[in-house]
Simulated assay, not measured.
Amino acid sequence: MEVGFIYHSFAYIYDRLMYDIDYSKWADYIENIFKVYNCKPSLLLDLGCGTGNFCIEMAKRGYDMIGVDISVDMLNCAKQKSEEHGLNILYLNQDMTDFELYGTVDAIVCLMDSINYVLYKKDIKRMLKLVKNYLNPGGLFIFDVNTPYKFEEVFGNNVFYDISDEITYIWQNYYNRRTKICEFELTFFVRDNEGYKKYDEVHYERCYDNNEIKGLIESSKLKLLNVYDELKLCPPPKKSQRNFYVCEANK
């Protein structure tokens, strides 16, 4: 199932479900990585930008932002919010594994486990080659992935739910250790003027271990600078649920 399709209805309730994500904290973290590697970018590309929250946060801090996403609905939400903030952000409706820009950029990010949504290595390889092609020399590519520990011990075959007056969801996971594919069956009940509206979504993520990720980076000719624990500047422990990778284009 195409990602663009599964995000059709989900796009309009995405922000209400992601209320606990501190985008300011994520932006602080990315800026800290820039400082560590003496990177002073002006133009940034956000692959899999969703409803634009990270783009908006970085644009407020003075960066020129480009957001790429396969979902038209996500981008409609992003554009509307950006205009409400008076921000001029370029949004492109493209597949992040096969994107095309008009020129190069200073840094690229791909956040919120967007890479796990890419189910085939060949597509990640193509994306990484494009990242290298569109990065200025010395530019950074920063991305995160959900770890094998998270897929096996947290997602697993577990059920999650949350009940509130505005929105209630039930989230059933099915993780296949052989294929490394996790299926998320999501059911939402969202309050509107007429009562509650029901949404059903099925999403898929693939688990990639550290050696697989490193191999993909190596094949792209990007230089792996470091691997960090979630929103930290230290090596990830065995039970880390999210790893960040920092790569550099050849100077």
Rank of each mutant, 00 (worst) to 15 (best):
T104Q: 07
Y174Q: 06
P148L: 03
K40P: 05
A59H: 02
I30Q: 06
K180Y: 04
N76A: 10
P41W: 08
V154T: 11
F34E: 04
R16Q: 15
W26G: 14
N93V: 13
E152S: 15
N93K: 12
L186V: 00
G86E: 02
P148N: 09
N176L: 14
G4R: 08
M65F: 03
K238P: 14
C39G: 12
R191I: 04
E57K: 13
Y12S: 08
F184W: 08
K198P: 06
E2V: 10
I167T: 10
L101F: 13
N173Y: 02
R206F: 13
P41L: 06
Y161E: 09
F151R: 14
Y63T: 01
V105S: 00
E152I: 03
H203A: 06
P236I: 02
V109R: 15
S164E: 12
S9C: 03
V36G: 12
V202C: 02
F54Q: 10
V159P: 13
L135P: 00
I21S: 05
K60D: 15
K79T: 13
M58C: 01
P237L: 04
E153T: 06
I6S: 10
D28F: 03
L101V: 14
E212Q: 01
F244R: 03
N146D: 14
Y63S: 00
S240V: 01
C247P: 09
S42G: 11
I66C: 01
P235V: 03
Q241F: 13
D64N: 13
Y175T: 00
N88S: 11
G62A: 11
K251V: 14
Y7N: 04
D200N: 08
N176A: 13
N250M: 09
L43I: 15
G215P: 01
K239N: 14
L111R: 14
M74P: 00
M127A: 14
C234R: 10
D106E: 06
K221M: 08
G138E: 06
I124E: 00
E218H: 11
N176D: 04
Y199I: 11
D15K: 04
E153S: 07
F151H: 13
V190S: 14
L43R: 14
I33S: 11
I115T: 02
Y19M: 15
F143V: 01
Y12C: 07
I21F: 03
Y7Q: 00
V36D: 08
V72P: 07
V3G: 15
N157D: 07
Y117H: 10
V145T: 04
G215W: 01
N226Y: 07
N158C: 05
V145F: 00
L111V: 15
M96I: 10
L111M: 14
D106N: 05
C247L: 10
M18W: 11
D69E: 12
F10Y: 12
D98L: 14
S114H: 02
V131I: 05
C110H: 09
N88I: 09
K125F: 09
V145P: 00
F151Y: 06
T147G: 00
I167G: 08
A11H: 03
I33Q: 15
K132L: 12
K197V: 11
P236C: 05
G50M: 07
I89N: 02
K238T: 04
I170K: 10
M112G: 12
